[in-house]
Design a protein around this nucleic acid. Sequence first.
DNA 1: TCGTTTTACTAAATCGTTTTAGTAACTTTT
DNA 2: AAAAGTTACTAAAACGATTTAGTAAAACGA
Lengths: 358, 358
Amino acid sequence: MPRKGDVKNIRPAPPRPDGEAVSLKQLAHHLGLSTTTLSLVLNDAPAAVSIPQDTKDRIFKAAKELKYRPNYLARSLRVQRTHTFGVIVPELSDGYSAMVLNGVESELSKEGYFYLTASHLHRDDLLEENPRMLIERRVEGIIAVDTPIRFEPVLPIVNVSGHDEIDGVTNVVLNHRHAAELGIGHLYNLGHRRIAVIKGQQFSSDTEERWVTINDAARRRGIAIDSRLTVQLTGDSPSPEVGYEATRTLLARGERFTAVFAFNDISAIGAIRALEEMGLRVPHDVSVLGFDDIYAAAFHNPALTTIKQPLFEMGRLAARTLLDRLKADNESEITATLSVEPTLIVRQSTARVSSPTS
Amino acid sequence: MPRKGDVKNIRPAPPRPDGEAVSLKQLAHHLGLSTTTLSLVLNDAPAAVSIPQDTKDRIFKAAKELKYRPNYLARSLRVQRTHTFGVIVPELSDGYSAMVLNGVESELSKEGYFYLTASHLHRDDLLEENPRMLIERRVEGIIAVDTPIRFEPVLPIVNVSGHDEIDGVTNVVLNHRHAAELGIGHLYNLGHRRIAVIKGQQFSSDTEERWVTINDAARRRGIAIDSRLTVQLTGDSPSPEVGYEATRTLLARGERFTAVFAFNDISAIGAIRALEEMGLRVPHDVSVLGFDDIYAAAFHNPALTTIKQPLFEMGRLAARTLLDRLKADNESEITATLSVEPTLIVRQSTARVSSPTS
DNA sequence: TCGTTTTACTAAATCGTTTTAGTAACTTTT
DNA sequence: AAAAGTTACTAAAACGATTTAGTAAAACGA
């Protein structure tokens, strides 16, 4: 419960240091020049060549002294550019989105861009409303993270982990085929044949592709995934709880398996909990393979073997691509898909199968 | 390495559905009315009472049909309100900030506010530049998370986990005294007398207060914290690595202790890793107490006993406070500090001391 | 010396709203 | 029937920049 602490009723904010906001007009008046001249000089416009250096110096000096800061709104209105992107994520606190956002920000800040964030919480209404509000605020482009595009792409869009091919939308995706090969290959090489798979939630855009490629990779090795060894995550909590529940469901079926390929690290952590509660040791009795390589993965107990997605890089790439698309004078050749490579990170949660199943 | 995937060069974005952006002027012309009338009606201004209902209906109908969307920049410029806040965090991907941001967003979205995020990465230059850029973009207020205020508070500011008392800045803080009591009390009651403490990084605003209150709580029970049992986190990585390193330093000193009070859950996780590597079992040989209660805490192995900070609530409270401060017609009575209460969450990483030390 | 170019600026339009200050045409009151 | 409201609107001035289309004076060229 929030409660008022030692309420001291401090003094009001100090009065704005005099002349807090000087407008260009005021500055111009102060110098006895027109706003045109000032604008030309301050923006180093081509037309400013004819202005003598000492006039320029006077202007710069006065601007600094009076702390002139152009009004961003006025400028944006006039030049029709806001230097702002919109970012739509399912939810901020799941680690995944945060890593991508980190990458986005690192790239945007280089060019003086900022971004507005909106979470849709997997709610249909927000999936439609958020983009609308962002567009209304004149963002120049939208980066969607693991989010279905439910709106007209009236401006440049990059979707991270999006799989729908939509005109005007660039998808930044992981090479899922490769990821599945790495994962299944790793487990196979350790001798695992009966592999359980925890599929992602229905709403996650990676779920389908991940499932298909894992299946293919398994079949290619002659160990098709038994449908009785697959469970699906349900519920949209970003906690390991959902993986825990799914794994209990799996265990309740009584089928034998020696490895679990989890949809992500979060659910892998939940799976480990469920397995150990049943007296199964990881990795001794069951190997668990995660996905993503979030910070927690390396320090979990046992440390998670996982398929790393370069999330930070994906964020960076998304931002870079969007910036480039804006700079390109023609949008006639939009790259549909950019793919990045996964890496297998072997740690302690997987091991050679101890008593191979038939 | 990002590489181009199946580059299909899809068709360009579809031509903007005709009349994509109707301006108020166009709409007015279309209806044979003035922009004044439309503005009055569409904003339901008091002066609109004299406009007959069927004119209003015509306006609404046309606005809908032509998909009129007011230009946010123009409006903001005129009314001098952007409905946007700036949020400054150390780094997005540490779980802590993300949880707070989640709370911030949930409160802001109720009122149609958005926020721009900026990370300072503990860099001095960014600590000064980020606020400047945000202010330049006309945010109406700033929420700082675990961030020192290094700029003139020319607009309303709420600092989450800030401890400096600055005019015009409201601090949202945890009741640290209570938190320390809960933590030390818990360990004490389990029989622990030699308690190691992992202090936070120098740059974290909670570090000092946390340390002082833990010391007090310990002293009050006659078990002053031995300086040879304290270590400080160094480095600004948001991974458990730093806690791991700190704990190894601690262990290297060869001092005996039965419990570790970590600065946060992340470092607690690193500490557990370090302890187990040395052959010490948690909680059998050493109890480890975390702080924050991030998602991973409950599912770590062993599950972390921790002092929960209501981070989501703190974000909400910060946003609510800022909104209220903006609505208040006078800023003469600014609450200096709002405090929220911690909770002790007992799980598996702490236990009764097995062989009590002298 | 006259015409052209260059130099050093500026007035006014523009971006798309909101808001102030009206104004005609009715309607009601006295 | 004149005065006082009301009703149903509008013209024009903001908001604070950028940009187009100038202009007057000085310098240059023939």
